[in-house]
Every structure is written in structure tokens, then in C-alpha cells.
């Protein structure tokens, strides 16, 4: 589904990704761990198409399409979802208006009919109830006045609403209390299917107790330096990143 080969990218003039390769197939869950500043969020932003990041070498394809050649909204319509490490507050644009606009923009680009108001609200009610976000919050501006954990729950809610193929979740577990972590994890597990894939960026084993990954990668200094199964995360938890080849 996602094939990244020898990816090099700069933020401004500074090289951050330095030859990163990764293959994610449908049905798989991958976890990426790694020290602060290693380039995990940079990878997420490059894949989603954020301005200010320049790919200097390498390729990334998504379902065979050249991902790097697409506009950010085209990547979203193709089925890529980025859960932000730091979700943005947008005063004056309600969560509901935002989501409905996003959903319909994606549908239009895919040549599908727009969702009806009734169907949209039905879906909102189902998904928000699961994540414990009430209607009052959803009528507010996007993430405005949301606590850190509520913002992350809102990311999980949007994931449920938009139903992408690949969820790229950048520290969606950070800032969640114990119950919220379980709820969000359940959301991710419900999202899992043979046609979909998940890439979890995380610092904590806790999340991986709930969402069991097929692969765990260590990203250090702009590259994947080690790949293993779930036991790799346990080993890192015990030993830290020292001793991992950088």
C-alpha cells in the first residue's frame, strides 16, 4: 500500500530524513518509535504534503501512485489520513462544518455523491458517542477549548468519520488518560481491516499493549535503523535507545 524508498528530505535547508525505506502492506499495523528529534513527525508531514519540507531524493508511492506528486487534499482523497501530534485550533470553523466539508470534498474528488445531512449526522452520533465527544464540543470551533486529550480523541473521531485506507497516527496516544487511551485504541482496532493499514508513531509500549503491531521500527537520525516484532518495543522499553545502531 505504502512504499517508501531511500527518502531524503529537508526542513528548510536542514536534512532530516536521510535515506528512509519502509513498506506497509494492507492489513498491517506498523509502529515507529525513536528518540525525540529523530524525524518521525517530519516523515508524517512529508507523506501528507506539508509546505516547507523538500524531498531531495527517493520515492514514496501509495497504492502505486506517486504520493509526492499529489497535493495534500488529493492524498487525503486517495485514502491517507494524518493524525497530528499537535492538532491545530481553528476558531470560527465548527468541527461539524469542517468535517462535512472535508468528507464531501474527498467524495467529489473521487467522483462519489455527497453525503446527505441526515446520513452525516447519523455517522457523527455513532462515532462521537464511542469516543466520548459530546455534540456541544462538536459545534465549537475545531479543537477550540479542547484539552490535550480531547484533541487527540478528536483526531480519532475524524479518523472514524473519514474512513481512510492508511492511518498515519503521530503520537495520538500522548496526553490521553488511561480510559481515553483504551477508547482511542479500540477506535484504532475497529479501524483495522484486511484492506487498511496503520502506521503508529509512538513513544510508549502502553499503546502497543492495546493495538498489537505486526512490525516495530526504530527511526533514528532520519533512517529506520532496526525493525522487529512487538518484542522489539518491549526491549526498547527496558533498555532505551542506547545500543541501537544509529
Amino acid at each position: 500500500m505504502l512504499v517508501i524508498e531511500n527518502l531524503h528530505a529537508n526542513v528548510g535547508d536542514k536534512p532530516i530524513l536521510k535515506g528512509l525505506s519502509l513498506i506497509v502492506n494492507a492489513g498491517e499495523v506498523h509502529a515507529i518509535m525513536g528518540p525525540n528529534g529523530a524525524g518521525k513527525s517530519t516523515l508524517a508531514h512529508v507523506l501528507a504534503g506539508r509546505e516547507g519540507y523538500t524531498v531531495t531524493q527517493g520515492t514514496a508511492t501509495f497504492d502505486g501512485k506517486d504520493l509526492l506528486d499529489l497535493e495534500p487534499h488529493e492524498r487525503a482523497a486517495a485514502g491517507l489520513f494524518l493524525g497530528f501530534q499537535y492538532p491545530v485550533e481553528i476558531p470560527g470553523v465548527s468541527n461539524l462544518l469542517f468535517l462535512r466539508t472535508a468528507l464531501n470534498a474527498q467524495r467529489r474528488l473521487r467522483g462519489e455523491p455527497e453525503i446527505s445531512g441526515a446520513d452525516f449526522m447519523k455517522k457523527v452520533r455513532t462515532e462521537s458517542a464511542v469516543l466520548g465527544l459530546d455534540m456541544e464540543m462538536l459545534k465549537r470551533g475545531v479543537n477550540v477549548g479542547f484539552s490535550g486529550g480531547e484533541k487527540k480523541r478528536n483526531e480519532a473521531f475524524q479518523l472514524g468519520m473519514l474512513e481512510p485506507k492508511l492511518a498515519l497516527l503521530d503520537e495520538t496516544d500522548s496526553g490521553l488518560d488511561i480510559d481515553a487511551l483504551r477508547i482511542v485504541s479500540e477506535g484504532i482496532n475497529r479501524f483495522r481491516s484486511p484492506e487498511r493499514a496503520v502506521l503508529l508513531i509512538t513513544h510508549y509500549q502502553r499503546l502497543l499493549d492495546h493495538v498489537r503491531p505486526d512490525y516495530v521500527h526504530v527511526l533514528a537520525d532520519g533512517r529506520i535503523v532496526e525493525t522487529g516484532g512487538p518484542d522489539l518495543a518491549l526491549r526498547l522499553e527496558a533498555q532505551g535507545y542506547e545500543g541501537i545502531a544509529a
Binding site: 504534503g49 497535493e71 487534499h73 487525503a76 482523497a77 497530528f84 470553523v93 475545531v142
Partner: peptide, 22 residues
Amino acid sequence: ARFYLQSRGLPRALADALLTRA
């Protein structure tokens, strides 16, 4: 904010229109 909206599927011009309206 613009990138957040774009990453959810809004074309840039539509994202800008929504932000300006707000």
C-alpha cells in the same frame, strides 16, 4: 490551520475560503 484542513481533504482554495469566512 490551512494544512490541517488540506490534510483532511479540502483543496487549498476551499481551505482558505473557510478560514477567511471564520
